[in-house]
Amino acid sequence: MGNPMKIRAASKDGVTEVKVLMNHVMETGLRKDPAGELIPALFITEVTAKLNDKVVMQAQWGQAVAKNPYLGFKIKGGQPGDKVSISWKDSSGDSRSDEAPVS
């Protein structure tokens, strides 16, 4: 499940700008713990963004997206009261969805 994302969605001049901060370790699988053991890879592989119930963007990520990933994008249309939702799935099969109203 992971921890909640922070989502900000603001509509201006017919464009909705979305900024998302996810909470995820984004382990590459190449890092060692203090005992010298490799820490297994664990990273977000897929991200889906929706405006209301319509998918507007899908992303695939690799290990080198930074820890606690940031995502910024812009949607044509959208207005205050609409809903933006973001979901991710990671390499362990874990997933999470969060949503925020457009302001």
């Binding site: 963007m57 690799g62 290990q63 080198a64």
Partner: peptide
């Protein structure tokens, strides 16, 4: 980077072609 591709964004027709993220 050891593996080069970091992120791929597929944009639907409602998206502006502008995305940002943060890389290692």
């Amino acid at each position: 980077n050891p593996t080069m591709l970091t992120a791929q964004f597929d944009l639907g027709p409602d998206m502006l072609p502008e995305v940002s993220t943060r890389l290692k």
